[in-house]
Structures are given as structure tokens and as C-alpha cells.
Design a protein around this nucleic acid. Structure first.
Lengths: 334, 334
DNA sequence: AAAAGTTTTGCAAACGTTTGCATTTGATAT
DNA sequence: ATATCAAATGCAAACGTTTGCAAAACTTTT
């Protein structure tokens, strides 16, 4: 009876015999209310297990307490979802946001027109937006970001665009991968991945730069789609028709995984005949046969950086894009 | 000038020369307002690209427009996040919720005390909760679900518990996997997976049932942890010390993947020497070497069922737990 | 004992909607 | 012209908070 639940400040104020304002201030530990009163009210709140109405509070404060995380699925409708890298990034984002008392509002978008982002931003559902992967929506993002500050993008920082990005240095990553193979004396390299995707384009550029510097013949490119089946088939056909290279740089671990399988099915050995370097270092990379040498992206750090930047923007401060250094993880495949 | 943004109903009502109520009703297509007025207001809203304040609306309607999706990380702090199965389930949930105009609020919880779910539910941030995987929190969930209807759990329906669950029939899945191996004439089977996890316990039970029915010697169990490294090491040691079985049923594809690697490193062939059946049919299952024969869980359907059930509960209707039939997907590993 | 100052509390407005009810407007019947 | 009825619109309250400002309750100083 005495312990029935208090569901709002009014209930609690009646119980305590004080005004609603006092209760509100007491719970916020406002020194304006006497310590004795404060303690009494807090005690009462505990006894009647009072939980403040977050929606009402956020409404009054004109904020939402949530950050939208959007996965635009432009190029590859299927890819992003299942890619462990994105999952890990999202998990880390959830943690980083939770640390600041914010919630993560997950939204998948299959862009049908160029209004989707504008509509989302203006709906007032979130205090800020994090976009994971530019996909083919870089111009839409650019337009909105011109007038909406709290918007951070995971992806490539592209000259001429002012959107605030966090991403690993894809050029450097591609360079590292190719360099590693070249230092082993490999001479005929192939890049597998679709350069229409901005991130992949930069990786391919780095790959080319390393080759140019080493003075070996120019590398080939297999513009494979990201989906599993496509990558396998592309590599398989390539090996059959064009002969095997002695080194492959894959634009992602998922592609690399399929390259491994295609090479094995073609009757060649990894790394003896063909060395393979992946990209991302997703959790399955160390569980492939053989375990994958790959370029690691630090998603925990990346997520923290994005959230940092976002809150700086929400606070109205300036902030600049961040590029993280990728590292080479040595395993058995190269 | 004429095109400046209208940010609330008041702005719009001033522009239209009508009251706020009329604007509200017009935008909701309420037949109470004259068609001409309705059209005029809607036109105006478009011109000044008006976006209704969702937070205010939800507040007034005493709802939040969001459903919380919680991943409790009890047994295996690392596992859930990166498991492609969960990712796929979450993606499907996001879609199913979006279809109903709801948002998905993602929350990872590492249970520190038994109040976490109660606090979340009472915070008023969501209209309903979907819990993905019972982990070791089944009792906490049971307690809360007794007094909070809109709560659905992905996981095992366990006798004696009344929480509303959607899950695949894990017993049947385990039985199917073992049966498949037995029908090939395999006689010495091993189950790899920790039976302390409720889902895995049911799979193990099904595994045992198939063996009992076939009348072959009882199978062994390797209570491996779900993490990749642990599974590899466990299987590797087992092969060395106890000799190889001719068939392995893994509690998940991730475990199976590592079993494949351990068997290969031990110098045996899959499926000739040891056949391996996985569980889940995550997207990498068809990309392993050899591709994995596995028990498929239909997560798209599962997600839809969960959302259906949830909204039925939100509407105050009755609903019963659902068990989905798993199917055997034949590939090369068994 | 009154004045002045300080600490503590309460009143009421505001955030942007939706909606029950009252009111106005216009049409039709007397 | 007046009464009746239907259709269209507006008024005002409510959702549960936070907070500027006014008021009340004490304390200290004169």
C-alpha cells in the first residue's frame, strides 16, 4: 500500500508534501533545495521505485536522447548487413553512445529518392546522425551536411567534399597490402573489388602506387561485386581465362575468403602459388583456411572517434575529419 | 521568403489563416475538415517543407514509436555482436519494425545486476522490447515478463517458463543434424558446444535422441565456448587425445568453421574422414572450405513473427510462443 | 522588534502535439 | 424571416517535465 508505484513527479510530490518543482530539483541534485529535503525525496523515489519519464523530459529539453545510425544500401543491397565489420562498428557505436547516455536508433535505408536523409534529419527523432558507409549517396549526404552540423560519416574523405568523415586511410591500406606482397618478391598482382565504391577506389589507388614504386608491371583489377557468390565466380573465371597472378589484394575479407576458395578449387595452393591479402580483419579472418593475412581497421577506435566528433558538433564546436592508420596483420595466407 | 520553413503547426496555421487544430486534423486527413481546406493546408505544408515533430506527437500520444532490441551478453561477452546470425536477425527486425512505422532502439547489455531489464522497461523509452537470446538471464526475463506484456524473446521455449518466445525448434535441429550423419553410416558422433546455453542444450538433446533411436553408441560432447579460438583449441586437443569421431555436430556455424580448421590441421579430410554439420546457416557457411552442411534458421521469418507477436501484445491481444522448423542445408562438409 | 539578507520553496509557463466539446458558419425546411 | 440541422472550425486542456521568477521562510544585523 505504502509501496505502490509513483509514476510521475506529481505522485511523488504528493507523497513528499512538497511541490513538483522541488521534487524535480531534488532528483537532479540541485543545491537550490535543502539537503534534508533532497535526501527525503530521493529516499521516497527509491521506495516507490520511481522512474522518470524520459520521453517527457527529453521533450521539455528539446532533445531526443538518441542518435540515428544509418546504413545506406546503395551499391549492394545485401552486403552491409551481414558484413561482420559493420556489425562490430555498430556494436562499438552502441557502447560509445551508451557511455554518454544516448540511445542508438538503427535505420536501414534503401535510397529510393534523394530526400531520405533530409526527411530523417528533420523528423526530429534524433539529436545527431552517423552514417555508416557512403555507398553511392555521397552527394545526398553532402547536401544535407551543409546545413545540418551533427552528422558524421564513416567512409572516405574525398577532396572537394566537406562532409565530416572518420575512416581508415584506404590509400595507405591498399599500399600496405600490395607492398607486403611485393617485398616477398611477388610480381604479378591483382586487385579484386569494385572501384566504384569510394573506399575501394582509394584502396585500389594505394595498390597501384605501391606497384608503380616497385617498378613491376601494372596490376590487374577484377571489379567484383561484394557479394559472396559473385566474388567466387569472378576469381574462378579469371584464373581459368587469364592465368593466375602470384598475389591478390582483396578489397574486403569477404572477397578474400572467396578468393581463397576459388584458388583452392582451381587446384592452386595459398600462399605458395598465390598469396592473398584481405581487408578489414573481421573476426572470421583468423578462422579461414589458411588464416587470412589482412589489413586491419580499428573499429573500436573508429566508433569512439565518430561519437566524439558527433558530440563536438552537437555542442556547436568545430571538428575536422579523422583518418585512422590501418595496420597489416600477418597470418598464413601471404 | 514565402518559402521559409514552417517548423510547427503554429507556423503553418498562421500561414493558412486557420487554427492549429484544423491544421493538425488536415494533415491527418481527418474528414472533419473540409476537403478544400485540407488540400490547401497540405499544399502549404509541402511548400514550406513542414515535418511534424515526432517527439511532441509521440509524447502527446503517450507512446514512443520505438521498440527496444536488447542483446544480453551473459555467457559470452564477445560472441553475439559479431555473429552474423544476430546481425541478420537485427536487420530483419529493423525492416519489420520500419514497415509498421516504428524505430529500432539498439541496446547491448552486460548484465551486472538483475535490475537491468526492469529499469529499461520502466524508463518509458520504448513501447515494447525484443530480447535476442536468453543468455543466462532467463529468470530476470521471466520476472519482468510477468508484469510487462509487450516483451518477446528470441530463444528457447522452456517448460515452466511463461515468457513469450520465438525460436527455431532446437531439439529438432539437433536431431536433424545427427540423423543426417547417422543415415550416412557414421557411428561415432561428437557434439561441440556448451550445453549451459539453453538453445544449445536443446540441440544437444535432439542430437542424443537421434543417436538413441539409431541404436549406435552414445555420442560425446565437447562443451566448447562459442568464441573462435576456444572452439579451435578444444577440437584440436580432442582429436589428439581421444581420437577422431567420424561425425561432428557443431552448435553453431562459427564453431563448425573452427572444427573444419582443426580437422584440416590435424591432417584429416572433411567429409571423408570426419563429416561436419553446422548450425544457423550464416552467410559464411557457403564460403568455407569445404562449404558447410548446416541447419538453417529462417531469420527473416523469425523477425517477422517476433514483431507480429509484439504488436499483438501491445494491442492487448493474446499470443502464444512460436517454434519455427529448422531445415537441413546440404553442402559439401557432410 | 524591525530591517535586510539569505536560503528554501512554489507558481506558472513552456515544449508541440491531439482531441473532446463548444461554437460558428452555411444550408435547408418551415 | 425564423427555426432546425449539418458541416466546418476553434478553444482549451492535457501529456510530464524543467526553470525563471516571485514568494515565503528563516537568519542575521541593526
Amino acid at each position: 500500500m505504502k509501496r505502490q508505484k509513483a509514476s510521475n513527479l506529481a505522485d511523488l510530490s504528493a507523497l513528499a508534501g512538497v511541490s513538483i518543482s522541488t521534487v524535480s530539483r531534488a532528483l537532479a541534485d540541485n543545491p537550490l533545495v535543502a539537503v534534508a529535503t533532497r535526501d527525503k525525496i530521493k529516499q521516497l523515489a527509491r521506495e516507490h521505485d520511481f522512474q522518470i519519464n524520459v520521453a517527457a523530459r527529453n521533450f521539455r529539453l528539446q532533445r531526443t536522447g538518441a542518435v540515428g545510425v544509418i546504413l545506406p544500401l546503395g551499391h549492394e543491397t545485401e552486403q552491409h548487413l551481414t558484413d561482420p565489420f559493420f556489425m562490430s562498428l555498430i556494436a562499438s557505436l552502441a557502447d560509445a553512445l551508451a557511455d554518454r547516455g544516448y540511445d542508438l536508433l538503427l535505420s536501414r535505408v534503401i535510397p529510393s529518392n534523394d530526400q531520405w536523409l533530409k526527411a530523417f534529419v528533420e523528423s526530429g527523432k534524433v539529436d545527431g546522425v552517423i552514417i555508416v558507409g557512403q555507398s553511392d549517396q555521397i552527394d545526398v549526404i553532402e547536401t544535407v551536411s551543409a546545413s545540418y552540423a551533427p552528422l558524421i560519416v564513416w567512409g572516405a574523405s574525398i577532396p572537394g567534399y566537406s562532409q565530416l568523415t572518420v575512416g581508415s586511410d584506404n590509400f595507405e591500406g591498399g599500399r600496405l597490402a600490395a607492398q607486403h606482397l611485393l617485398l616477398q618478391g611477388r610480381k604479378k598482382l591483382t586487385f579484386v573489388g569494385n572501384p566504384a565504391v569510394p573506399e575501394f577506389a582509394a584502396r585500389f589507388a594505394g595498390f597501384n602506387a605501391a606497384i608503380a614504386q616497385a617498378g613491376v608491371p601494372q596490376g590487374a583489377v577484377l571489379p567484383s561485386h561484394v557479394t559472396a557468390e559473385a566474388a567466387y565466380a569472378t576469381v574462378r573465371t579469371y584464373l581459368k581465362e587469364d592465368g593466375a597472378p602470384d598475389g591478390i589484394v582483396a578489397a574486403s575479407d569477404v572477397i578474400a575468403l572467396n578468393a581463397l576458395r576459388a584458388i583452392a578449387d582451381h587446384g592452386l595452393r595459398v600462399p605458395e602459388d598465390v598469396a592473398v591479402v584481405g581487408y578489414d580483419d573481421v573476426f572470421i579472418a583468423e578462422q579461414t583456411t589458411p588464416p587470412l593475412t589482412t589489413i586491419r581497421q580499428n573499429f573500436v577506435l573508429g566508433a569512439q572517434m565518430m561519437v566524439d566528433l558527433l558530440f563536438r558538433r552537437i555542442a556547436g564546436e568545430e571538428a575536422a575529419s579523422i583518418s585512422l592508420q590501418p595496420t597489416l596483420v600477418l597470418r598464413a595466407s601471404a
